[in-house]
Design a protein around this nucleic acid. Structure first.
Lengths: 126, 126
DNA sequence: GACCATGGTGACCTCCACGTAACCGAGGCA
DNA sequence: TGCCTCGGTTACGTGGAGGTCACCATGGTC
């Protein structure tokens, strides 16, 4: 049963919970997952990312990419030409992240209706 | 390949990305995953949760539980006794969430070292 | 009458994630 | 001499997440 495995891992609170929080802090911000999803489709230039992700500001795209680069999830390649050309891509480590993300995404797609319904019921009760 | 599936889902930006953001907003806050993890081990009373989760304040525990209850992930059972007794447990829907959470947790445990190392290298370069 | 535990609620404050807007430097091009 | 593009950086402002602390109702118990 899945619950048992989860419990076992969660039980080691010092190591596990704090670590999962660290990765949630990384991936749980507003743009990281979207950027990772876009880069999952292939290498992208800065401006390509900006155009592909509606609503993201230049500043936030830079910040998000820096964070992902710092954590070794994304690689940054500068081509010394004019105008500048910078390519971003998922690293091998970044690629391995796609699977857990996909699992979560899939869960969201499968159960969003139930959640929506539960919210309606809860709010209806007051 | 996992990347392809992820990309396909992410490609439907309107439906998928916004939905995964919704679930990340729920699960990505500071305490929800920890509470879910604890409840994954079995039903718990309010005070048991408070004691089991070091650092959480009464107010945040209440808020977190209310949010999870609203989304149908956690059930709340009040026993009309004195002093009050309130039991919290994962709903069937909440139980299904354990698997994707476990996947993410597992990824975190497997790759945290690499991330730590990447951070060190990045910060070292300045 | 005073004190305890339980399961909260509400006022208040702080900090930071995020948004907006302006600016920048190198070179091509007209 | 400007003006363009690309890939940023910097200054500044704001909302909301989350922390702290006080307070509360109930009834048992001493």
């Amino acid at each position: 049963m899945v619950a048992d495995r989860v419990s076992d891992v969660f039980a080691a609170r010092d190591s596990a919970t704090c670590r999962v929080r660290e990765i949630l802090d990384r991936v749980g911000d507003k743009w990281s997952l979207t950027v990772i999803g876009e880069l999952g489709r292939g290498s992208r230039r800065f401006t390509e990312l900006k155009n592909a992700i509606p609503g993201i500001s230049q500043r936030m795209l830079t910040a998000t990419l820096r964070g992902l680069e710092r954590d070794g999830l994304v690689s940054r390649t500068v081509h010394p030409v004019v105008p500048p050309r910078v390519d971003y891509a998922l690293t091998p480590l970044g690629l391995t992240l796609l699977e857990p993300v996909w699992t979560l995404l899939n869960w969201a797609l499968e159960h969003m209706d139930e959640i929506e319904e539960a919210r309606g019921a809860y709010d209806g009760r007051g």
